Amino acid sequence: MSVIEVKHVTKDYGQGRGIFDVSFEIKKGEVFGFLGPNGAGKTTTIRHLMGFIQPDEGELYINGKDTWKSTALIKHDVGYLPGELAFPDYMTGDQFIEFMAEERHISDMSRTEELKKLFELDTSEEIKEMSLGDKRKLAVVTAFMHNPNVLILDEPTSGLDPVMQERFIEFILNEKADGKTILLSSHIFSEVDATCDRIAIIKDGMVVSMIEADQLKRNTHKAFKIEFSSFEDYEKFLGKTAFAIPVKRPNQNQVKMNLTDEKMQQLFTELSEVNVNFISEIKFTLEDYFMDFYDRKKSVSDGEENLQYGIY
């Protein structure tokens, strides 16, 4: 059963800005990652889901309700955490929480108190005096205080310190275990990798890939870093290898290679003819997969520059 449905949605702002024929669905109890850099179309899609924007084309549904026609009803079903925070500055944190509780007809504040304790939030001060991190915590508390079954989270850990980011990830995993349906929009690979069942990558307003997280973990391509004992061994390997290895800098003795399992035996056969200091596997990550869809110039860190004889 799909709780969230996005069907061929287009919103064209002109000059290549907007979203174009975006489609995906999220099943009950699933955490769905929406991954892309700022400006890719994540927030525009989410604003359509929340009924803030009417699409030029396409339809969106949450729990079977049209998000444009049933905006008020949907807001009671959903916990929404916006990427850009906007609070009434004249209120304290306590006053804002009280206001949101009245809006949602919440009388039992025990969950709210648990969330404040979990995220170490002092709600007594005026919102305008709060740090960005505390404002983000306040947004988290108010998004989850009514214990919704559907959560739409736009860059949820932006502004949180590393400790609170980890705590938030643990919290999301607990919500997932409770059967919540979650859309997590982010450009932070670690939080998407740690929480999501499926991941959509959006680029220039279009979904360019959809993949299951487990599929990435079962990837058969492996990357290796090899350091030869000498420049002579390195040259000998390059002279005989059947693998295509681009030589970018002279006087190096390291290579990085991407291989499938079936090519491993061939590599080790070739390496048996030279002297090698070490071979180390480089874990394939969500970031590696993501960057296949975005142009990237690989930069060499100071540490790599200081390695004698390297190919990257």
Rank of each mutant, 00 (worst) to 15 (best):
L115Q: 02
M145E: 00
H146W: 02
V150W: 02
M164H: 14
E113K: 14
E166I: 10
P162E: 03
L138G: 00
E98M: 10
D122C: 05
Y90S: 12
M145A: 01
Q165T: 08
H146Y: 05
E103V: 15
L151W: 01
H105M: 12
V163H: 10
F99K: 08
K135Y: 09
L153D: 02
S131E: 13
K117I: 03
L118E: 11
E155C: 11
I152W: 04
I97K: 00
G159R: 12
D154A: 12
D122R: 06
F168C: 02
L132D: 10
E113V: 10
E126W: 12
M100F: 09
I127R: 04
K117T: 10
Y90T: 11
F119M: 03
S110H: 10
E126Q: 12
M100P: 05
L118N: 11
V140K: 01
P156K: 03
S158K: 12
A101I: 06
N174T: 10
E125K: 15
I169L: 06
F168Q: 01
S131F: 08
L153S: 08
L160P: 02
R167D: 12
L138W: 05
E170W: 10
L173F: 05
F96Y: 15
L115Y: 07
P148E: 07
V141I: 15
H146Q: 05
E103K: 08
T112G: 03
E155T: 06
G133Q: 11
Q165I: 11
F96D: 00
D108H: 03
G93Q: 06
P162V: 10
G159M: 11
M164A: 05
L121Y: 09
P148W: 06
R167W: 14
V140N: 03
E120Y: 05
